[in-house]
Amino acid sequence: MAGTQDCSIGIAVESTYKTYVAPTRWYEFLDESLDWNKNVKQGQGIRVGSRVARSGRRVVPTADGGGDITLECCSKGMGLLWQAALGTGVSTLVSGTTYQQNFTLGDTPSSLTVQKGLVEVGGTVDAYSFLGGMVSGFEFNFPNADIATLKLSVDAGDLTTAQAYAAPSYPSAPVNLFQFANATLFTGTLTAPTTTVLASAITPLANVRGGSVAVNHNIRSDRFNATGTGRKDKPTKGLSEITGKLDVEYASTTFRDAVLNETPMNLLVTLTAGSLSTGVETLQVVIPEIKLDGELPKANGTDLIVQSVSFAGLDNLTAAQPIWVVQRTADNAL
């Protein structure tokens, strides 16, 4: 019998927006807030004898769903999520059983079927299948002394409870977590990743305590049109915004001056995990140019001064991409 801890999240890439595909990939997730939002309208017509709103005058012209899914970043099984999060993904054999997966912004990101299994107190597992799941944005966190996480914001076009529950299966061991002990940050002259070579930069940022990178795709998610029976057409992608923050010990005036002088920097975040046939499991976030918005250092009583420096990611004018996510893995496909 399933226990209440046996909830699941599984996904599959759809061939057609809002057309169910049985999940093929499942994740050890931390939390989720997937919900269904009805746009309820109550008729307001005045009628003799009515003292409360009339049940026959309540309608639902439109409805859609969505929410957030948060999970720990691990060394296997993440390819389809990163592809949905950015828009484009390519997997290339490096050598042996080592593959490099490169993800960049795409104009026509895939839609997902996202099925969550929820367990009743008696052990029955109910399947909620969200269709047309579009990742409207994501946040990658690499906190101090902790495990790196990925939070995906999902917009869903439809929901069905009629599809059968797909029992989860997970990547074979070893599956390693990307975490703070194996994190490095660099700036300076940047060498962009290729399909088989990781990104690199020359200047370490040793006093960064942690941070985050977020992307908001500004999707147009209100495409409710006639003949759609109250469900929307596939959202279109807007101008993506790259933002983030770095928590920095006040060990020099480097970040202060970059804030004051609008100094462009690049940012390379690298986390490593277990061994591969070639090299090690790696997760990189690469931004060719950031500009710092703030903050300036502030006194912290008798304690260590730590700046929480926010930034914007920009197009760099000449860089091939404004952002890459790169993963070295034993997965032979996304």
Rank of each mutant, 00 (worst) to 15 (best):
E139F: 02
E139C: 06
E139L: 06
F140A: 11
F140I: 12
N141F: 11
F142P: 00
P143A: 07
P143G: 00
N144W: 10
N144D: 08
N144I: 05
A145T: 12
A145Q: 13
A145M: 12
A145N: 12
D146C: 02
D146F: 05
D146L: 03
D146E: 12
I147L: 14
I147P: 05
A148Y: 02
A148F: 01
T149H: 14
L150D: 02
L152C: 00
V154C: 09
A156C: 09
A156Y: 01
A156L: 02
G157H: 04
G157V: 07
D158I: 04
D158T: 02
D158Y: 01
D158M: 04
L159W: 07
L159G: 11
T160E: 03
T160M: 01
T160P: 00
T161W: 00
A162R: 03
A162H: 02
Q163I: 01
A164L: 07
A164M: 06
A164E: 09
A164K: 01
Y165K: 01
Y165Q: 01
A166Y: 01
A167E: 08
P168A: 02
P168K: 00
S169W: 02
Y170E: 04
P171S: 05
S172M: 06
S172P: 05
S172Y: 03
A173M: 08
A173E: 12
A173N: 10
P174F: 03
V175C: 04
V175M: 03
N176V: 05
L177C: 14
L177Y: 15
F178P: 00
F178S: 05
F180P: 00
F180E: 09
F180A: 10
A181D: 11
A181P: 00
N182H: 11
A183F: 06
A183G: 04
A183S: 04
A183L: 11
T184V: 15
T184R: 14
T184W: 13
L185C: 12
F186R: 14
F186K: 15
T187G: 08
T187Y: 00
G188K: 13
G188H: 13
T189L: 09
T191E: 09
P193Q: 13
T195K: 06
T195E: 08
T195P: 03
T196Q: 10
T196R: 10
L198S: 03
A199E: 02
A199I: 06
A199G: 04
S200C: 13
A201N: 09
A201L: 09
I202D: 15
I202P: 06
T203D: 00
P204A: 11
L205H: 14
A206V: 15
A206K: 15
A206Y: 01
N207A: 14
N207E: 15
V208R: 05
V208A: 05
V208Q: 07
V208N: 07
R209G: 06
R209P: 04
G210L: 10
G211K: 11
G211R: 10
G211M: 12
G211D: 12
G211C: 11
S212M: 14
V213Y: 14
V213R: 13
V215P: 13
N216S: 14
H217D: 13
H217S: 10
H217K: 15
H217Y: 14
N218Q: 08
N218I: 05
N218E: 10
I219T: 03
R220S: 03
S221F: 09
D222T: 07
R223E: 11
F224C: 02
F224Q: 03
N225G: 02
T227F: 15
T227Q: 15
G228K: 04
T229L: 08
